[in-house]
């Protein structure tokens, strides 16, 4: 089985997200970089599918040259190959990104063979456009469902059964392979890199590509921090002594039923 995962390098912010003075980007000074937790789970899923069914996993990213770090992270948990489409530090709009990724998938498939499954995150951690995976799958004419939290390969490898959470339970899709899915955090539990994995990641050859995809119709003008409701926090007390004040508050909010439970 051949599995591709698409991941996007993003800054890893802390308690709040700062913006550069010109409003064009997240201020990543002193910040590390990461990828969406959805995409971390996607990488783990790819490695598990190849462990169970044989074959090869491949990671694809579009971004600045430093996204090499995310490719090597993928290799450290067992992903076999990597491709980086180097477009510099300027963020690309969703249509342009999808066109470039589609092109990259076609070129990898021409060299190594078709992918049975292409895995995306449900949405990217930063821009969250909710569409790049769907656009790529559509261009490649493969079925695609987003928000997937469980998969099984069934029918002798012909079908990928994909499950998604609803309010009441799960809904089930049966996608003929080759297919694509967008996954949510929780579908797998990402492993930590082993010593052997770290060594493999150092030796990984990251294939470099460029792209001349045309710009799409959405242009970011600037970023702003949403206005925060400023609330004076009412300190109800310290330790167990605060309990009566909390119970008083719960009564006020109509959430305390005398005599219930306990």
């Amino acid at each position: 089985m051949r599995v591709l995962v698409c991941v996007k390098r993003v800054p890893a912010p802390g308690a709040k997200i700062n913006i550069t003075e010109d409003g064009q980007a997240v201020d990543a000074t002193n910040l590390g970089h990461t990828m969406s937790p959805h995409e971390e789970c996607a990488l783990e899923l790819a490695v598990q599918l190849v462990e169970a069914h044989g074959g090869e996993s491949h990671v694809l990213t579009l971004g600045e040259a430093a996204a090499d770090e995310q490719c090597r992270w993928a290799a450290s948990i067992g992903v076999n190959k990597a491709t980086l489409v180097d477009v510099g530090t300027q963020g690309w709009d969703p249509q342009r990104t999808a066109t470039a990724l589609t092109h990259a998938v076609r070129s990898i498939e021409a060299a190594d063979g078709a992918f049975d499954v292409i895995i995306f995150g449900n949405e990217s951690a930063d821009t969250g456009g909710f569409q790049v995976g769907i656009r790529v799958a559509r261009a490649l004419e493969r079925p695609m469902v987003n928000a997937i939290k469980g998969v099984d390969i069934v029918d002798d490898g012909a079908v990928l059964e994909a499950r998604r959470e609803t309010d009441a339970g799960m809904e089930v899709f049966r996608l003929p392979m080759p297919c694509a899915i967008g996954v949510k955090e929780g579908i797998t539990w990402p492993r930590y890199p082993t010593m052997r994995g770290r060594l493999a990641s150092k030796k990984l050859v990251v294939e470099q590509q460029t792209s001349d995809a045309a710009q799409g119709g959405q242009t970011m003008v600037r970023l702003n921090r949403p206005e925060e409701k400023v609330s004076e926090t009412v300190i109800l007390g310290h330790g167990a002594d605060a309990a009566p004040a909390v119970v008083e508050l719960l009564k006020e909010l109509g959430l305390w039923t005398e005599g219930a439970a306990s």
């Binding site: 308690a15 925060e228 609330s231 926090t233 009412v234 300190i235 109800l236 007390g237 310290h238 330790g239 167990a240 605060a242 309990a243 909390v246 119970v247 508050l249 719960l250 439970a261 306990s262």
Partner: peptide, 25 residues
């Protein structure tokens, strides 16, 4: 903690002291 600063109400203390005291009314 950011959660305390942003919350409407807060109790400062160990949750293992605070929560049972609330539950037991």
């Amino acid at each position: 903690a950011n959660m305390v600063v942003k919350a409407d109400y807060a109790v400062i203390g160990d949750l293992f002291d605070v929560l049972p005291a609330i539950t037991n009314g």
